[in-house]
Amino acid sequence: MLKKVISIAAMSFVCATAVFAASDKTVAVVNNEAIFESEYNEALAPVLQQFKAQTPAAEQTAENIKKLEDYVLSQKIDEVLVKQAIKKQSIKVSAKEIQDAVNQVKKSQNLTDAAFNAELKKEGITLAKFESSIKDQLAARKLITQNAASQMKTPSESETRAFYDKVMLKVKNDNAKTGLSKEDDALAGEIARLVKRASGEQAKIRIIAINTQGLSGSELKAAQNRVSEAKDALKEGQGFAVVASKYNSSEALRANGGDAGAVAKGDLSVVSSALDSAVFKLNVGGYTKDPIKTNIGYYFVKVEGKTAPRDTPVTYEEVKSDIQNALLQVAERKAVADYFAKLRDNAQIKINR
């Protein structure tokens, strides 16, 4: 009787698998390993959602969406190639390495265990899934290090100083000709921007950020009510940090009383130019009495300190390590790109889209 039950169960599983395989098409095959439409769509969905939320309607063209779809598929192909290479080269990641990496994430984000678990829950990710993702990342890093380490050399003193000179040209003039490659010129411009940021006026702030992005109906109404409640609490004289601890959407900001550290002019423009402007109009101790509406929600901000802009140029020694790290990162990106290109050249890849 038991054997019959097992046989029926096995037959049911085979039939179910056959039906699933028939309905779940393959979008690509990498060295005889299929990438199914379901897993591709799972990877595409959040990317597409973010694109639609942050991109003006006029730019949400079929052509741009197609580019996004192709990019996600390319990433999935690279993911399979990496996993195959990891398996082939028998690369292992220990439980301690995974735990150390998880602890580093918590530390870098200033998250308590409770806040970390709350963020995972908010993102709909289990701890096991997060640790599995960390394991894959660590294994991939080991793979890259073992196969592309020869290209990842810290730049010499002369190379670093020469690049510093190019950066200072960009500090003086954003459009200065550096004679560098397009990528290196862009890097010099980015470092110049950071140098100017470090040299300019800065403000230490606390924020109350109440998210409304992607909300509608009762959820949007509830968020708007929280904005009104936060405004009333501040008006009643409750401390800004106390109100921030209660009303911030982010668990991390609630945990630290809305402490957002130091910002320079322009930093907050990526959220809202009005928010950035408000910060540097406020005196120390002042805060916005009314919420500032942005594309992602409402903000209150308080300025707790200010640093005047420096009147002396940034020296080579001050930015030497930053420049070396930046140049090393460029070398690493190139090494990774070259390695992936090599993996692709040696692979059999068939795309079915």
Rank of each mutant, 00 (worst) to 15 (best):
E159M: 06
A326L: 10
A262W: 15
S90E: 15
V105L: 15
R333Y: 11
A230I: 01
S228V: 05
V93A: 08
L194N: 10
I6L: 14
N325V: 11
R254G: 06
K52H: 09
L328S: 12
Q137K: 13
F240R: 05
A337T: 13
Y71K: 12
A53V: 14
F116N: 03
E219I: 07
L180E: 02
G286M: 00
I323H: 01
G258E: 05
F36E: 07
N346Y: 08
I296L: 10
K204G: 09
I8Q: 03
Q109T: 06
G286Y: 01
V82N: 11
G305S: 14
S23H: 14
K306L: 02
V303C: 00
D259P: 04
E157I: 13
G297P: 01
V314I: 13
Y339F: 09
Q329R: 14
G297C: 04
K96M: 14
S321R: 10
G124M: 02
K231A: 06
V243I: 09
E183M: 10
F13M: 15
R333F: 08
M11H: 05
L44F: 10
I210K: 04
S269C: 05
L120S: 00
V47L: 09
M1P: 13
V284C: 06
A128W: 04
A241Q: 11
R254V: 05
I86L: 01
K320T: 14
A244M: 00
V72M: 04
R141I: 08
S94M: 06
V336K: 12
A262E: 15
E42R: 13
E190L: 10
V167P: 01
V93S: 06
D338G: 07
L138S: 07
V284Q: 07
M152K: 11
A308M: 08
N32K: 14
E317N: 14
G261D: 04
K289I: 05
I210V: 07
D338I: 08
A115W: 02
F163E: 00
S132R: 12
F20P: 07
